[in-house]
């Protein structure tokens, strides 16, 4: 694949999701969302609860119909779900009657059907080992902690060697220590495998720690990209070094402030015309007293 194609590995263009409304016009949950991801890049989506982050992610995953716009992955427009995209949700949803090994093998058997049984077994063992479950492969989900179950879910997704990994608040149900541990596990795998990844999270520190870029979404309805922050911190990331970086708290403060400002949009007071970007093309000059007629060179009425 050319360098140019790698620079625009995932192209999300004018992505819009509208839901029918009983009261008239359809309600747009997401409107005109544009984002381009480079190959191997990790991009976090942050925004308030219900702003539409997961809607974007599920549209990219092909699990949610796109109202308008497109998602192009490695030069091909996505049409529904496919093995080129691995998805990890907050809950791993493992099949309880299968062991960790069997849960991961389920997908591998489908995607690597051409490989020998031994090869498939090796792939499965490799990825379970990569997420730190080498000693727990034969355990059933009920015998695993929440963090371990999520590791199985992650191994199941990345074992299929997806072109893109989609993580929807993957650590949302885990305690802090397990969360940090799992973040390191995933970061290790992503840096090694160079998998292009989109992460939905509420956690500002998590977004900074894991991402090359952070896409800040405005509040819904009609949520869209507010701005994108490109993080200057070196990879592979080291948590303690990152926390000691002189600019870390500047970036963290900017993210938190953005979220606070978005919260202000909800209050009616902040909707005064002077408190927003003045859309000059939406102004109504006809009604204004401050008009001027020009007629030919220099003519003023």
């Amino acid at each position: 694949m050319s360098a140019s194609a790698d620079r625009r590995y995932v192209e999300i263009a004018s992505l819009t999701k509208a839901y029918p409304s009983a009261f008239g016009e359809p309600v747009k949950a997401v409107d005109d969302f544009n984002l381009i991801l480079r190959r191997g890049e990790v991009v976090s989506l942050i925004g308030h609860s219900g702003c539409g982050k997961s809607t974007v992610l599920t549209m990219v995953a092909g699990l949610n119909d796109i109202t308008s716009g497109s998602v192009v992955l490695a030069g091909r427009e996505i049409q529904g779900p496919g093995p080129d995209r691995g998805v990890v949700f907050q809950s791993p949803c493992l099949l309880p009657w299968l062991t960790a090994f069997q849960n991961v093998m389920l997908g591998i058997d489908q995607v690597y059907a051409h490989g020998t049984k031994s090869e498939r077994r090796q792939i499965c063992e490799y990825y379970l080992d990569a997420v730190g479950l080498a000693d727990a492969m034969d355990r059933y989900p009920r015998e695993l902690s929440g963090g371990m179950q999520q590791r199985v879910g992650i191994a199941r997704a990345i074992a299929l060697k997806p072109r893109m990994l989609l993580l929807d608040e993957p650590f949302g149900r885990l305690d802090s220590l397990t969360r940090m541990e799992l973040q390191d596990v995933i970061l290790g795998v992503l840096d090694r495998e160079q998998i292009t990844t989109m992460v939905v999270t509420h956690d500002v520190d998590e977004a900074i720690y894991m991402s090359h870029r952070i896409c800040m979404m405005t509040n819904g309805p009609a949520a869209t990209v507010g701005q994108v922050l490109e993080l200057p911190f070196d990879r592979p990331r080291n948590r303690s070094e990152l926390l000691e970086h002189p600019d870390y708290y500047e970036f963290r403060g900017a993210l938190i402030s953005f979220l606070e400002r978005q919260e202000l949009r909800k209050s009616p007071q902040s909707r005064r015309p002077d408190a927003t970007v003045v859309p000059a093309e939406n102004a109504t000059p006809e009604g204004s007293a401050n008009t001027l007629q020009t007629a030919g060179a220099g003519g003023i009425l």
Partner: peptide, 14 residues
């Protein structure tokens, strides 16, 4: 500092 790392897609921000 922050502005140098900010990117705006079409339609975003001022």
């Amino acid at each position: 500092l922050i502005s140098r790392h900010v990117r705006f897609p079409k339609g975003a921000g001022l």
